[in-house]
């Protein structure tokens, strides 16, 4: 298996691998997290659909640069469209003010409704694509390295790393337990909801007992490697921020502040051009 340009990422099974030949790969995970959060905040501050469209195009460019798989985009787009349909539906139908554009019985589409609906759709799409950017440019281990950079207490970092590492084992154990139950005649698909829930509980008992035994083994292993020694820990990986990371983070913050000023001081970026 050649993983030359691919590396395992979060959300295994859904996206699976990330590309290592993109400009984003060498950035610190903290930067990628900051970009995602700050740009989401900017998008939330803007109501006017026209600047929102610009933001959406910007996020699309980000995703293309990150070489995210099309599969991810399709799934997220459909999810967002489904969610926004509901919001748009309520906004479009129940807003009574504004010029009527189209009417069919009780269904009344107004200009105000259309504009608000478009705004919501663009916001949700932008944020969804920012999430794709986040997930497809970070591997599990990058998230943990990011936690180091943020100076999170080591005990939490250790738990995060162990959880990521153990997730696959947990899945395998769950599957094996279900197989073992099925092999003794327990049919998980039979019975009403209550009976099925009860069957599911019978899977929990072996899972917990296996978990307890594994924790015991893990404890022995880490203790004999001086875990919890009280000594100041060092870090093998270089987990600091580079100049480019600082530049990007500061740039994003500046954009956020600028958006805030434009919105609340100058009254731009809102629904005011439309008289709403």
């Amino acid at each position: 298996m050649s993983t030359g340009r691919l590396s395992k990422s979060t959300v295994k099974g859904f996206i699976g691998y990330i590309r290592t030949d993109t400009p984003f790969f060498s950035l610190s995970p903290v930067t990628k997290l900051a970009v995602t959060l700050i740009l989401s905040a900017i998008v939330l501050l803007i109501d006017d659909p026209r600047p929102l469209l610009v933001c959406l195009i910007f996020t699309l460019v980000l995703i293309l640069l990150a070489k995210a798989p099309i599969k991810a985009m399709k799934l997220y787009t459909i999810g967002v469209l489904w969610m926004s349909c509901m919001c748009i539906f309520f906004n479009v139908i129940f807003r009574q003010s504004g010029d009527v554009v189209f009417q069919y019985g009780l269904l009344r589409v107004t200009t105000e409704g259309t504009i608000r609906g478009a705004s919501i759709l663009l916001k949700l799409l932008s944020m969804a694509y920012l999430t794709i950017f986040f997930v497809t440019s970070l591997r599990d281990r990058d998230i943990v390295y990011g936690l180091y950079t943020l100076r999170v207490p080591y005990s939490m970092i250790f738990v995060a790393a162990l959880t990521f590492r153990s997730w696959g084992l947990f899945q395998t154990d769950l599957d094996t337990i279900r197989d073992a139950m099925t092999s003794r005649g327990l049919d998980f698909n039979k019975g009403n909801a209550f009976a099925r829930a009860k069957k599911f509980v019978s899977v929990l008992v072996p899972l917990i007992s296996i978990l307890v035994k594994r924790i015991d083994d893990i404890t022995k292993s880490v203790e004999t490697r001086a875990f919890g020694s009280g000594i100041q820990r060092t870090y093998y990986h270089n987990i600091g921020l580079e100049h480019i990371d600082y530049a990007i983070i500061v740039g994003c913050f500046a954009a956020l502040i600028l958006t805030g000023i434009l919105r609340y001081y100058y009254g731009l970026l809102s629904f005011s051009p439309y008289g709403l």
Binding site: D173, M181, S183, P206, S209
Partner: peptide, 13 residues
């Protein structure tokens, strides 16, 4: 009948 490698995967009572 199928007996799994690790009895802990089976024992639940």
């Amino acid at each position: 009948g199928y007996v799994f490698q690790n009895p802990d995967h089976q024992l639940c009572h």
